[in-house]
Simulated assay, not measured.
Amino acid sequence: MAEYILDISGLNKRYGNIQAVDNLELKVEKGTVFGLLGPNGSGKSTTLGILLGVVQKDSGDFKWFGEEPTASQRRRLGAILESPTFYPYLSGIQNLQIVCKIKEVPESRILEVLEQVGLANRATSPFKTYSLGMKQRLAIASALLSDPEILILDEPTNGLDPQGIAEIRELILDIAGQGKTIILASHLLDEVQKVCTHFAVLKQGEKIFHGTVAESLMGNEGVEVLADDTESLRKVIGTFPSFIDMKLNNVGRLEVQLSKETAIHEFHEYLIEKGIVLTHLAYINKSLEKQFLQLLSAKS
């Protein structure tokens, strides 16, 4: 039976005429990597702010570890809500020593977390010399100092280059592999698809989807085909009994949508019977991005 580490019920927050969080219902299982998705202004950061006690809710409830939020509970949480802010002329170690004093954590944890985030070799370098990716990793290190059970990250790869994004992705997976629960807000769907086990989609503060990444990516979106004679291929595909739709993609291949019960070998055999020899045949895998856009347009 699932153990829920976070339970949100009827959560609301309004800023003037804007409903930032709209009657949000959400549960997060222990040990998962949970992605909170949505366009700018969807309520992701506001929701995280409420959960961390830095934003006042209007109504509704939420529970951490099955209990009402308390100061002692928050010690079991590690979080990064905004861009990392450290003293530029101090080293990574010196900045974390300050964080240790604030969090009342022993400094013996510093080298351990720096090693964990891959900054041990730059521990004595001034923060101002760090790349954006290194600054983000130092922020994650500061959140890990208290050895939290839950790590909360708001747009952890925002502004990073592809290498920095890949480094943060691997770090998140490494932390998750140690059994910690991770909740992250992001609009980078490809990254969420690669690191998250579960996700929810918000639009204008309202939850419009909640499920697992694996279930959302099950099956396929049709098949991609190519033949020497594209026009003949088009005509024959159009006569296939289970044909629904097709389009030419940007690499010159036909993307064909068939009814869900159609077996790929039946489609291929039909083409062969009609004298069509394919030079390419592949499934079109589902993507979180396409489903995300469909969800948003369906709720417009």
Rank of each mutant, 00 (worst) to 15 (best):
I172Q: 05
E191L: 10
D190L: 01
M246T: 00
L226T: 03
E221F: 00
A176E: 07
I182G: 06
D245P: 00
Q204F: 03
F209P: 02
Q257W: 12
L217F: 00
G275I: 09
R169N: 02
G177K: 03
R169S: 05
S216N: 12
D228N: 01
E269R: 13
H265C: 06
I276C: 12
A185W: 12
G211D: 15
D245S: 15
M218C: 02
V277I: 11
M218H: 06
L226H: 02
G219V: 01
I183K: 06
Q193I: 00
E224P: 01
F243S: 14
I175G: 09
Q204W: 06
I168H: 08
V251E: 11
V201G: 01
I276V: 13
T230I: 05
I183D: 08
V277T: 09
G211R: 03
K274C: 11
M218W: 00
E170R: 15
E167C: 12
E206H: 13
S186L: 07
G275P: 10
C196I: 10
F243G: 11
H210C: 07
A166S: 04
C196H: 08
K194Y: 01
Q204I: 04
E167V: 08
K260N: 04
L202D: 15
E269C: 08
A214E: 14
Y270A: 15
Q178T: 04
T230P: 08
C196A: 15
A200S: 04
V277G: 09
E206G: 15
L278Y: 10
F267I: 05
I168V: 15
G211I: 00
A200V: 02
V225C: 13
I276F: 08
R253P: 05
L202M: 15
E167M: 11
L278H: 07
V192Q: 10
S216M: 12
E170F: 08
Q178Y: 02
D174M: 09
K260C: 01
L184A: 00
A227I: 06
N250H: 09
S259E: 14
D174N: 11
I183M: 12
H265G: 06
V223M: 10
E261A: 14
H198I: 04
F240I: 13
G252R: 12
S242K: 08
A176T: 05
D229P: 13
E170G: 14
E215P: 03
H210I: 05
K274G: 10
R253A: 09
E231N: 08
T262K: 11
S232F: 05
V223L: 09
A200C: 07
K274F: 10
A166L: 14
I237A: 09
L233Y: 04
A176L: 12
E231S: 12
I272L: 15
S259D: 14
H268G: 07
G238I: 08
L278K: 02
Q193H: 04
Y270N: 14
K194N: 05
L173I: 02
A200T: 04
V256E: 03
L189V: 05
E206K: 15
G211A: 09
L248D: 00
G205E: 11
V201C: 03
I175N: 11
L226K: 07
V213F: 03
E215T: 02
A166K: 11
I182K: 10
V236N: 14
H198Y: 02
V277H: 07
M218G: 10
L278W: 06
E206S: 15
I175W: 05
L217K: 03
E191W: 06
C196R: 08
L233M: 13
H268L: 14
A166C: 02
L278S: 05
